[in-house]
Design a protein around this nucleic acid. Structure first.
Lengths: 215, 215
DNA sequence: ATCGATATTCTTGTATACAAGAACGTTGAC
DNA sequence: GTCAACGTTCTTGTATACAAGAATATCGAT
């Protein structure tokens, strides 16, 4: 389906905020953006409203729309929440995932292993994402799946950095195998616990890296 | 802070959708709404976009904005997700809740008991809401607290009906006491389990009532 | 040089206009 | 009577205009 101009612009702006092209507190100027995109202010205003409602910017009435990059505390909280959502997905998936789903999950993890063998962190990152999305799908709860995808997407720029730690890909793969085993065994608690710990480690690695950069 | 007109209209429309004033699939006519609220289409369009982005309506480009009342399956999924979010809040709160917070929680539950004694389901409903919000706060994770509040608010029209079941208030109160005990004991798993079960029962009661009405 | 008041400029929120696409009604053929 | 094509009407998406409020600049007094 064809997106209207305002929606296209919203996607472009969200990507730019993700990439850090605008720093925290930057005011998104309607007139400048209208010039930049070659449109009137109306679709720009509509696009900015999307950013505000998704939490990537905040609006102060009659003052403007300001970019909001999450600080370290908020990121920690988001990773904690992501860990709990993934644990919930794992719990449901352990009972509800079909045999086909388990097959796809195992294959996604094999592609993760191939990426580790190649020392390919970009490939690992993509296959890791697909691995987790297979579990969200396996929870067989569309609402929870959407919530998990939304937060996974929100944390995308930060999830990547954890792979910079030496040995993290190998460790992550090992954790994946424990997750797959728990799901195959139909062990709800084990699936929940291994997933929660797996994502918690992601958040911790991120915090450690940020702490290192700020010194 | 003073809300702009568009935001005021959005709140009014959201309340109307909550209350079921618009049935599922109803097209929200920009021109009619502009007349009704005595404004131009511009703030109406902005308000409608809020409804779309919060999931209460869907937009089909160049066709219009249509109200989306969740069906039974989606409601079940939302209650399931709510149960998992509350379990997560309970897990964190068991370790992080302050003594003052535990005091406030116990007092909120005493007000629930008073409402049961009066056979006051409206009062119970309000105090029950405050009870749960105290646990969200006690999780000491602002992001998770906002997510839980958002879904609690979304499920508001449906949570109320469960109290129509005979004996449900007394049962709910009993479950509350188990929750308070688990939090006081600092038992993360018990807190999570009792909260998850408590909210799952809410969802189940709702389904049973809907099934009865549809016959 | 600094500070407060006032004036000016700029940006936002809303109103209105217009083009394009969708929905609906009418007409003619079968 | 039904269906397809065409014409008309209505609604949406975007452009532009304007008023109001916020931000910034300037000027005068100390």
């Amino acid at each position: 389906m064809e997106l209207k101009r305002a929606d296209q612009i919203a996607e472009t702006l969200e990507e730019a905020v993700f990439k850090g092209e605008y720093e925290d507190g930057h005011r998104l100027d309607e007139i400048k953006l209208a010039d930049q995109f070659g449109v009137s202010r109306t679709p720009i205003r509509e696009a900015l409203q999307k950013l505000v409602l998704s939490g990537m910017a905040e609006q102060i009435p009659r003052r403007g729309v300001f970019v909001r990059q999450p600080g370290p505390v908020e990121l920690l909280e988001m990773f904690e929440t992501m860990a709990e959502l993934e644990a919930a997905c794992g719990r449901f998936a352990s009972a509800r995932m079909s045999d086909e789903g388990l097959e796809r999950l195992a294959r996604a993890n094999e592609r993760c292993r191939d990426a580790v063998d190649r020392d390919d962190s970009a490939g690992y990152y993509l296959e890791n994402e697909a691995f987790h999305q297979e579990i969200y799908r396996g929870a067989t709860n569309s609402f929870l799946e959407r919530e998990a995808l939304r937060l996974q997407n929100r944390l995308k720029p930060y999830r990547r950095v954890q792979l910079r730690f030496r040995g993290r890909m190998t460790q992550s793969l090992s954790e994946h195998e424990a997750i797959v085993d728990a799901l195959k065994a139909g062990d709800a608690e084990l699936a929940a616990t291994t997933l929660r710990n797996h994502v918690t480690v992601q958040g911790e690695k991120f915090q450690q890296l940020m702490a290192g950069l700020n010194q």
